[in-house]
Write a protein that binds this DNA or RNA. Structure first.
Lengths: 149, 149
DNA sequence: TATATTTTTGAATATTATCCAAATTATGAG
DNA sequence: CTCATAATTTGGATAATATTCAAAAATATA
């Protein structure tokens, strides 16, 4: 009997969900078919990107959360998206932004522990193009993905 | 005819969705009832916090994204959660973390534009207890909430 | 005002979630 | 190892829900 939960978590982390039309309809005192029409309209014009789950990350082995400020090497300044897009593929990374100020990129990383973060950092954040990093460790998550914890 | 989309967006931002069990079942080559059982199990034990939508934030009037580093006044050091929990109620704030380093809090804020951010900052970030802030503006979002853009 | 476009409605149908009792598999104590 | 217990899977039945569609209403456009 294989443990399905890890696979479910991976799928639900960025998709695999759908709006509860009838519940939303009751909530807004509107017919289901109207809600359906409006939601499909937002899906078609690209307003909605995905429907996904938010987890108690401690319970899925991603209890350690770090924000990493990244300084690129000068030859990457002209195209920070090259590095950013490469980083996007890592499942540990929740978000990636190109930002203003002394740092070029800000990423949010979730791992099981500080040891796993160290492994991640040495594996991923040591590539050519990343000149220097500074990390802010989250001591306590109060809100994430618009969900209050 | 009232425009339902703003209300739908508000509800879907932090909830109002559900997993697509049959789709997940097909994806994992497993019976629906098994997926159902596993998902309910994760809901019961608190592994899943919510099912929600991810938007193209430019299209919902939240195209301007800022990370704000917050330094609390010394009398708040002992309980940064007091301020953090107060901030959690604001719909503009996507995430709030208590962090290590020179700053006590790191929040992620979404507004329509830099003008609206200014309004937000003067309204929300000027309360007693917040001594100093520094903001990193997002020039480009590459990934958010585990969803690649 | 007339016409086109968008949105809503309600009913019919298709799809899906949910429930449940039985079967199977895993776990742990002795 | 063996038995007892708990956890998970299965398949079929039913309930709930999404989806479709044509007509109506509302809104925008000229």
């Amino acid at each position: 009997m294989r443990n399905l939960k890890p696979q479910l978590i991976e799928l639900l982390k960025s998709g695999g969900c759908t709006p509860r039309i009838s519940k939303l309809a009751r909530n807004l005192h509107t017919r289901s078919s109207t809600i359906h029409y409006n939601i499909k309209s937002m899906e078609k014009d690209g307003t909605v990107r995905s429907y996904k789950a938010v987890f108690d990350y401690k319970k899925i082995g991603e209890g350690f959360c770090t924000f990493v400020l990244i300084h690129l090497s000068p030859d990457e300044y002209s195209d920070p998206l090259k590095i950013a897009n490469m980083l996007a593929a890592y499942p540990e990374i929740e978000s990636i932004d190109v930002v203003t100020g002394e740092w070029e990129l800000l990423i949010k990383v979730r791992t099981a522990s500080i040891e796993e973060y160290y492994t991640f950092a040495t594996r991923v954040l040591s590539i050519k193009g990343i000149a220097r990093t500074q990390s802010l460790n989250s001591l306590k998550q109060v809100k994430t993905e618009f969900v209050i914890l």
